[in-house]
Amino acid sequence: MPADLIRDFGYLTLGTRLKRLGDKLQSDVQLAIDVLNLPVTSAQYPLLAALDRDGDMTIGALVDAIGISQPGVTRMVTKLEKTGLVSIKTGTADQRQKFVTLTKDGEHLIATSKETLWRHIEKGVRDICTEGDPTTDILIALDRIEQNIEASSLFARMNKHPLDKAPS
Rank of each mutant, 00 (worst) to 15 (best):
Pro39Cys: 08
Ala65Trp: 00
Tyr45Gly: 01
Glu150Gln: 15
Val63Ala: 05
Thr13Leu: 12
Leu117Phe: 03
Ile140Met: 15
Leu38Glu: 04
Ile33Gly: 04
Ala50Leu: 01
Ile110Trp: 06
Asp137Arg: 15
His108Ala: 14
Lys104Pro: 11
Asn37Lys: 09
Ser113Ile: 02
Ile121Asn: 02
Phe9His: 14
Leu80Lys: 01
Ile88Val: 08
Trp118Pro: 03
Leu36Pro: 03
Asp23Gln: 13
Asn148Ala: 12
Pro39Val: 05
Val29Ile: 11
Ser113Leu: 06
Asp143His: 15
Tyr45Leu: 12
Leu51Arg: 06
Leu85Asp: 00
Ile66His: 01
Leu36His: 01
Thr130Asp: 10
Thr90Leu: 11
Arg53Trp: 11
Val86Asp: 07
Asp64Gly: 10
Ile68Cys: 10
Glu107Leu: 09
Ile6Gln: 02
Trp118Tyr: 05
Glu131Thr: 04
Ala151Gly: 11
Pro167Met: 05
Thr78Asp: 12
Leu31Ala: 09
Thr41Leu: 13
Glu131Val: 03
Tyr45Val: 08
Thr83Trp: 12
Pro71Trp: 02
Gln97Gly: 06
Glu107Gly: 13
Asn159Phe: 08
Arg53His: 15
Thr83Gly: 11
Gly91Thr: 03
Leu25Val: 15
Gly10Tyr: 03
Arg119Phe: 09
Lys89Val: 06
Pro167Ile: 12
Lys160Val: 03
Cys129Val: 12
Glu131Gly: 00
Cys129Ile: 12
Ala32Ile: 13
Asn148Val: 07
Ala49Ile: 13
Gln26Ala: 09
Ile33His: 13
Asp164Val: 08
Ile149Met: 06
Met57Gly: 00
Ile128His: 08
Leu109Pro: 09
Arg96Asn: 14
Leu14Asn: 10
Leu18Ile: 13
Leu38Pro: 03
Val86Asn: 01
Ala151Val: 06
Phe155Gly: 13
Gly91Met: 04
Arg75Ile: 05
Arg7Ala: 13
Gln95Ala: 15
Asp94Gln: 09
Ser153Asp: 03
Glu146Asn: 07
Lys24Arg: 14
Gly106Asn: 00
Leu47Ala: 06
Ala166Val: 01
Lys98Phe: 05
Leu36Trp: 07
Leu85Met: 04
Glu122Trp: 14
Asn148Gly: 10
Leu85Ser: 05
Leu51Ala: 01
Pro162Ala: 00
Ala49Thr: 15
Lys98Glu: 14
Ala43Pro: 02
Val40Pro: 02
Ile145Asn: 15
Gly91Tyr: 03
Gly106Asp: 00
Lys79Ser: 14
His161Arg: 12
Phe155Cys: 05
His161Lys: 14
Arg75Pro: 00
Ser69Phe: 05
Leu12Asn: 07
Leu102Ser: 00
Leu139Lys: 13
Leu85Val: 09
Glu146Gly: 07
Gln147His: 07
Ser42Gly: 02
Arg96Glu: 15
Phe155Gln: 07
Glu131His: 08
Thr58Glu: 07
Leu12Trp: 07
Arg7Lys: 11
Phe155Asp: 14
Val125Met: 00
Asp164Leu: 13
Ala151Ser: 09
